[in-house]
Amino acid sequence: MNPVNYLYLAALLFTIGAAGVLIRRNAIVVFMCVELMLNACNLAFVAFSRMHGNLDGQIIAFFTMVVAAAEVVVGLAIIVSLFRSRHSASVDDASLMKL
């Protein structure tokens, strides 16, 4: 199958993720959308790796997974403590950092 199709799929996933980050208010969903964007990037890396015939892209995909796993640990912890203090998981409620 033509590897370019994977790139199309990656772009589609990335766009869905980005739109979810911008539109959704629930922190968990926003978080999932961020993961979706990361995985879209991974897919693009792997596709490019296949297209160019070297392993750099695949190695970077591993790095990305490690970083994403670490991010999930920290991010979920923040969301849980946020929910405990405010009884809400809406990102718009956490808007104290403004003038």
Binding site: A18, V21, L22, I23, V30, V91, D92, A94, S95, K98
Partner: peptide
């Protein structure tokens, strides 16, 4: 310009995108 600093993470994300 101050109005841009509204504290909504999503609007910051818009400007980043």
């Amino acid at each position: 310009l101050r109005k841009l600093q509204n504290g909504y993470a999503r609007s910051y994300a818009v400007s980043m995108f």
